[in-house]
Nucleic acid binder design. Structure first.
Length: 436
DNA sequence: TTTTGAGTTGTTCGA
DNA sequence: GTCGAACAACTCAAA
């Protein structure tokens, strides 16, 4: 293997798969070194995915193709590797005269530990590992109480978040104007999905569309699952194919309610950052004393959308078929699993994690714990969603139900897995006993 | 330190 | 049909 003599900086793409307003990439391109852009299909993560037809891999692969096209047009090439980050980086260090490694920060426990290890490894070779805030407006301790401790209630957190926001936080980085500083190199082929151990799916990568009409009407239409009232930008936020600064800038003049959704994202990221025990435990310890029934057969029916409650089944079937579920229905199905079936929220969380295209550890965990009543800023446990009532309010003409459960009135459709009133009483009693 | 007001998303019951 | 209270008292944030 020949070593290239030109000194380079690496820019390591992770969950920031875009050339527009990419903070870390911009810093790399301004570093004075030629920049070699890289991406690593991380074996540590991929090996944990059960489904070889995971749509998220197709999305990532498509996003990489799109990056590659534009990077190639600039006379450079994206180097895509497959392995553990440590292996991949060691190989690059052997091939290139690497003077610095640039990346954007990631706040999940796995990523934090990964980056700590990589930082140590690079440090031994005297190579600086420079990381940047790109994924969020405010990170770590930037929105905390006056005594320096983290907020655990959304409303005061959001007030301070908004008060702290200044024009400068939304400045767009001129990444695309600096593409000339990418290293001039022959094209590296993009490995096929199959080479990374996955099969193609029906999921295609499409660049994000910021639909200002949906955002402006969001407060009116967001709860109606039969409408396209939500922006579906979650997956783009997950993989960084859209810039959070762009979204906040779009939200401010159009919709406070939608802006709040972006703040919820950072609120739960902050909770995960400060309270990593929530990954495996209830935020409030005593909720781990609830005697969950954890009936596997019932759980199976919930997963498949065969509970006999049309709105619940519609949601689960939408998730299974598309990798997406409308937010209102996520709450209904989560409430149903935890309260009606008294199943540990971790079971539902894991099921969503495996299937949601927009899966985000912090939000998924935070919202499941919200639904179960075990989280910070949780719904009181006696709030038990009534599927019939929710349907009457949010799907009155049953168009959502009919789309996903067309046979909901047929004799072959399952009987209700449990009577609502009975389930409600049982949930209240079990919770009361569990948390006292 | 103490006190006070408030807290994403609900349901049910009775007037 | 509409409205307010109860659900069960709890924890947090801020003054």
């Amino acid at each position: 293997m020949t070593r290239t003599d030109e000194p380079v900086a690496l820019f390591w793409f992770r969950r920031d798969l875009r050339l527009e307003d990419n903070v870390g990439l911009t810093h790399a391109l301004k570093s004075g070194y030629s920049v070699l852009p890289i991406f690593i299909f991380d074996k540590n993560i991929l090996e944990k995915l059960e489904d070889r037809h995971d749509r998220r891999l197709s999305f990532i692969h498509g996003a990489l193709e799109s990056l590659q096209k534009r990077i190639t047009a600039a006379g450079s090439s994206l180097r895509v590797m497959h392995g553990t980050p440590e292996e991949a980086l060691r190989r690059l260090l052997a091939e290139y005269d690497v003077r610095a490694v640039y990346a954007n920060r990631d706040y999940e426990p796995y990523a934090v530990e990964r980056d700590r290890q990589i930082g140590l490894m690079l440090d031994k070779s005297g190579i600086p590992f420079r990381t940047f805030k790109d994924q969020v407006i405010f990170e770590k301790n930037e929105v905390v109480k006056s005594d320096g401790t983290p907020y655990t209630v959304f409303t005061p957190y959001s007030r301070v978040w908004k008060k702290q926001l200044i024009q400068g936080d939304l400045i767009v980085s001129p990444t695309e104007q600096l593409m000339n500083n990418l290293v001039k190199t022959g094209p590296f082929p993009l490995p096929s999905l199959e080479e990374t151990g996955f099969a193609g799916t029906d999921m295609l990568f499409k660049p994000p569309e910021i639909d200002t009409g949906i955002i402006a009407d969001y407060h009116k239409t967001r709860n109606i699952p039969s409408l396209d009232g939500t922006t579906r930008l979650g997956i783009h936020l997950r993989f960084g194919t859209v810039s959070i600064r762009r979204l906040v800038a779009a939200a401010i003049p159009l919709s406070e309610v939608w802006l709040n959704e972006l703040i919820w994202r950072e609120f739960f990221m902050s909770i995960l950052w400060h309270f990593p025990h929530v990954v495996d435990n209830s935020f409030r310890k005593k909720y781990d004393n609830i005697s969950w029934r954890n009936n596997e057969e019932e759980f199976e029916r919930w997963c498949k959308g065969m509970t006999g409650y049309p709105i619940v089944d519609a949601g689960m079937r939408e998730l299974n078929a598309t990798g997406f579920m409308h937010n209102r229905v996520r709450m209904i199905t989560a409430s149903f699993l935890t309260k009606h079936l008294l199943t540990d929220w971790r079971w539902g969380e894991a099921y969503f994690a495996a299937r949601l295209l927009d899966y985000e550890l912090s939000s998924n965990n935070g919202n499941w714990q919200w639904a179960a009543g075990s989280g910070c800023d949780a719904a009181p446990y006696f709030r038990v969603f009534n599927p019939a009532e929710q349907t009457r309010k949010f799907d009155p003409d049953l168009s959502y139900v009919k789309r996903w459960v067309p046979e909901h009135e047929d004799p072959g459709y399952p009987r209700m897995i449990i009577d609502h009133a009975l389930a409600r009483e049982r949930a209240l009693k079990t919770y009361k006993e569990g948390i006292r």
